[in-house]
Amino acid sequence: MEHIVQEQFLPISRAEAWEFFSHPLNLDKITPDELGFSTASCPDGAIYPGAIIIHRLQLAPFLAIPWVTEIKAVDEGFSFVDEQRFGPYRFWHHRHSFEETEGGVLIRDEVHWKAPFEPFSAPVKALFVKPRTLAIFEHRKQVLTDYFSE
C-alpha cells in the first residue's frame, strides 16, 4: 500500500477552500491536461455522502477509461473522503481536509493507494504509476497557488 501526504497553504478562508474543493467539476481545472481528465457525471452543487462521481481518463490514444469514485464521508467545511469504486487503481482512499490558519487555510491530502495487478505490476508502478501519481499532486499544488494568488 502506498501512502501520500501533501499539505499546501493557501491565502484564502477555509470557507473559500471548501467551496472550491467540494464541487467535483473543479477537479478538471487542477488535473494535468495530458491525462485527458474530465468529469462525466457528478451531483449538482456540493458533494454529499454517497455521491457517485464519474471521471474519464485518457491513458493513451484511443484508450479512455472511467474512474468512478464515491464520496464516503463529509464533515461540512472541514473534510471529505472519496474512494474509488472502479478505475485505474486497485485501491484508492483520499481524505481532503481544511484547517484554518493565520492568514489562510492549510489543505491536506492524504491518500492510500495500490496499483492494479500487484505484485506483478511492481516495475510498472515504480517506473510509471507512482511517479505519475506524485506528479499529479505537484501539478495540482502549482495550479492552486496560481489560481488563488490572482
Results as ranks from 00 to 15, higher is better:
3 H>S: 07
3 H>W: 11
7 E>D: 11
7 E>N: 14
8 Q>M: 09
8 Q>A: 05
9 F>G: 06
10 L>M: 09
12 I>M: 03
14 R>E: 08
15 A>E: 15
15 A>M: 09
17 A>R: 05
18 W>D: 04
18 W>P: 07
19 E>R: 14
20 F>T: 08
20 F>P: 10
21 F>W: 11
26 N>E: 05
26 N>K: 12
27 L>K: 02
27 L>G: 00
27 L>W: 07
28 D>P: 00
28 D>C: 13
30 I>V: 15
32 P>E: 04
35 L>T: 03
35 L>R: 10
36 G>I: 05
39 T>G: 03
41 S>E: 14
41 S>D: 14
42 C>G: 05
42 C>I: 02
44 D>N: 11
44 D>K: 11
48 Y>W: 06
49 P>D: 00
49 P>N: 09
52 I>M: 12
53 I>A: 02
54 I>T: 14
54 I>S: 04
55 H>G: 00
55 H>T: 00
57 L>R: 02
58 Q>M: 11
59 L>I: 12
61 P>I: 09
63 L>I: 14
63 L>V: 13
64 A>C: 08
66 P>D: 07
67 W>C: 03
70 E>W: 06
72 K>I: 14
73 A>I: 09
74 V>K: 10
74 V>R: 08
76 E>H: 10
77 G>W: 03
78 F>S: 13
79 S>L: 08
79 S>P: 08
79 S>N: 01
81 V>K: 06
83 E>Y: 06
84 Q>I: 07
85 R>A: 06
87 G>F: 12
87 G>H: 05
88 P>R: 05
90 R>C: 04
91 F>G: 00
92 W>A: 03
93 H>A: 03
93 H>L: 12
94 H>G: 05
95 R>G: 00
96 H>R: 10
96 H>C: 07
98 F>H: 02
98 F>P: 05
99 E>S: 15
100 E>G: 09
101 T>Y: 00
102 E>R: 09
102 E>P: 01
102 E>I: 13
103 G>L: 04
105 V>K: 04
106 L>Q: 06
108 R>E: 04
111 V>T: 01
113 W>Q: 04
114 K>Q: 14
116 P>N: 05
117 F>E: 01
117 F>R: 06
120 F>C: 06
120 F>R: 00
120 F>A: 12
120 F>T: 00
121 S>F: 10
122 A>R: 12
126 A>P: 02
126 A>G: 02
126 A>Y: 07
128 F>K: 07
128 F>C: 11
129 V>S: 13
130 K>A: 15
133 T>Y: 08
134 L>G: 03
134 L>C: 09
135 A>D: 07
135 A>G: 10
136 I>V: 15
142 Q>V: 12
143 V>I: 15
143 V>T: 13
146 D>M: 08
147 Y>S: 05
148 F>D: 08
148 F>P: 13
149 S>C: 10
150 E>R: 15
